[in-house]
């Protein structure tokens, strides 16, 4: 089975399904109509070619340079990929040499915005299958559950922190940490002063010894 084509087929299906969930995305996609973007992720074996029309077509880009005439070509590592969501970062990434871009930066920026600005009403999507009442109740319950879970989590974290700061605990407060750091700094200064004084005394003793030696030999 042609595995790369299976992968591109999956990416293409997912991208277009997601775009369909946001009615405003068609307008933004139209700005890219007729353009193409080649993405080479260094960790992946195949470069991908995105062609834009009323939908996004994803292909394996040919290894033959004559075949791969895209409006914009970007080359990057996997770790940089999530940063592309913010199109304002593109120039910075290029300067940091984390992103290699050849061609029209507008294509990359518009594609990045297209994905970042997706606004999907998940409640409405669910309502298509379950009806408005069930969808609304499901989402309200989920939101309440999330809120409760978040509140419980925050409280647990606070209690845990408090327990750790008790007299017999293994942790200290921030003030205690600052005081301890100041003590350490004082001790370091004292030690440095003492070391300097010892060095000076040693130097004086050595000079006196040399002078005595000179006098003895002159007699």
């Amino acid at each position: 089975m042609p595995l790369p084509q299976l992968v591109t087929s999956g990416i293409e299906l997912a991208l277009n399904k997601v775009l369909l969930l946001d009615p405003d995305s068609q307008g933004r996609l139209r700005k890219l109509s007729g353009r193409s973007l080649q993405v080479k992720v260094n960790e992946l074996p195949w470069p991908l070619m995105f062609s834009f029309s009323s939908q996004i077509d994803v292909r394996i880009a040919s290894q033959d340079p004559q075949d791969t005439i895209a409006d914009c070509l970007i080359e990057l590592n996997l770790e940089t990929l999530p940063k592309l969501k913010d199109s304002s970062q593109l120039t910075q990434l290029i300067q940091q040499k984390k992103l290699n871009l050849i061609g029209d930066i507008y294509v990359a920026q518009t594609f990045s915005s297209l994905m970042k600005d997706l606004d999907i009403d998940w409640e409405e999507q669910l309502a298509k299958y379950t009806g408005d009442v069930v969808a609304h109740q499901t989402f309200s319950s989920t939101k309440t559950l999330f809120k409760k879970a978040k509140f419980n989590l925050e409280q647990t974290a606070e209690k845990l922190a408090e327990n750790l700061r008790q007299p017999n605990s293994v942790s200290i407060t921030q003030n205690e940490m600052i005081l301890f750091s100041e003590d350490v700094n004082d001790l370091r200064s004292h030690t440095e002063r003492l070391a300097a004084r010892i060095a000076r005394l040693e130097q004086t003793a050595q000079i006196k010894a040399e002078q005595n030696q000179t006098k003895g030999s002159a007699k």
């Binding site: 591109t8 292909r59 004559q66």
Partner: peptide, 12 residues
């Protein structure tokens, strides 16, 4: 469908 996709990938 994948065979046809491969054809398009090779078409340039």
């Amino acid at each position: 469908r994948l065979w046809k996709r491969y054809t398009i990938d090779c078409s340039g």
